[in-house]
Amino acid sequence: MSDPFITLWTAQERDARGLSHDELARRSRLLQRRVLRRDLIEYAAGLLVIFIFGRFALDAQAWPMRVACIVTIVGTCAVMWNLWRRRPHDDPAALARDAHGYLRSQLVEQRDALASVARWYLGPFMPGMTLFVGAMVHESAQRMPLAAALVIGAIGAGVIAATFWMVLGLNRRAARSLDQQIAALDAGRDPNQPE
């Protein structure tokens, strides 16, 4: 039978020690791999968007749809460039000096990128998506009553808005999770363990 006070004290002592340099370096590499995997998926999705909207632009008969597709492709390229600029930079010299500070700076960079996703990720898609919905209404109005075309446009705008809202919510939630990891790291606790 163990003394609950000694068990509590030893648990607190284990938390108070913090993480070793090797563990911090391992966590840093894990974060970099996770971000790289996420970015590779984003690049693949971006290439798919460019291919699909490129085909739409080539097949479209009306110029508003072609313009909308081209603007969407440009927005996708801007997002991919923004992802490239926000990727974690590997700095083994900094890691060797201060693993805690290095991991913390990586977490802060990723948190800031996720928290500002509306500006650098969703923003470049807005012009193309707005033009695409407008072009969709324009083309639909050639084949059906204007009211029906407007309903189709409203449904398309709703789907786009819901997708944007979901992306924004997921990124904000991920930013809050990184905030908690940063706070745990600052307090000398393991950032991947619940409080």
Rank of each mutant, 00 (worst) to 15 (best):
D39A: 11
D39F: 15
L40P: 15
L40W: 15
I41K: 10
I41P: 00
I41V: 14
I41G: 10
E42A: 15
E42F: 14
Y43H: 13
Y43K: 13
Y43S: 10
Y43I: 10
A44G: 12
A44V: 13
A45L: 15
A45W: 10
A45Y: 12
A45V: 15
L47D: 09
L47H: 08
L47Q: 10
L48I: 15
V49P: 01
I50G: 00
I50K: 00
F51S: 09
F51T: 15
F51A: 14
F51P: 00
F51K: 09
I52N: 06
I52E: 11
I52P: 03
I52Q: 10
F53S: 08
F53R: 06
F53V: 09
F53K: 05
G54E: 03
G54S: 07
G54R: 02
G54Q: 04
R55N: 10
R55T: 11
R55A: 14
R55L: 14
R55S: 12
F56L: 15
F56G: 08
F56H: 08
A57T: 06
A57G: 07
A57K: 00
A57E: 08
L58W: 05
L58F: 05
L58R: 05
L58Y: 05
D59K: 09
D59N: 09
D59I: 00
A60D: 03
A60P: 01
Q61N: 07
A62Y: 09
A62W: 11
A62D: 14
W63N: 13
W63H: 08
P64F: 01
P64I: 07
P64T: 05
M65H: 01
M65S: 12
M65W: 01
M65Q: 12
M65F: 06
M65E: 03
R66K: 14
R66T: 14
V67K: 01
V67Q: 03
V67T: 11
V67C: 02
V67R: 00
A68G: 10
A68C: 06
C69I: 04
C69K: 02
C69D: 09
I70Q: 06
V71R: 01
V71I: 09
V71L: 08
V71F: 05
T72Q: 07
I73P: 02
I73T: 04
I73M: 07
V74C: 04
V74L: 11
V74S: 00
V74M: 06
V74F: 12
G75Q: 04
G75P: 10
T76G: 02
T76A: 04
T76Q: 08
T76D: 03
C77A: 11
A78Y: 02
A78C: 08
A78I: 13
V79E: 08
V79M: 10
V79I: 13
V79P: 00
M80H: 09
M80V: 07
M80S: 06
W81K: 07
N82K: 06
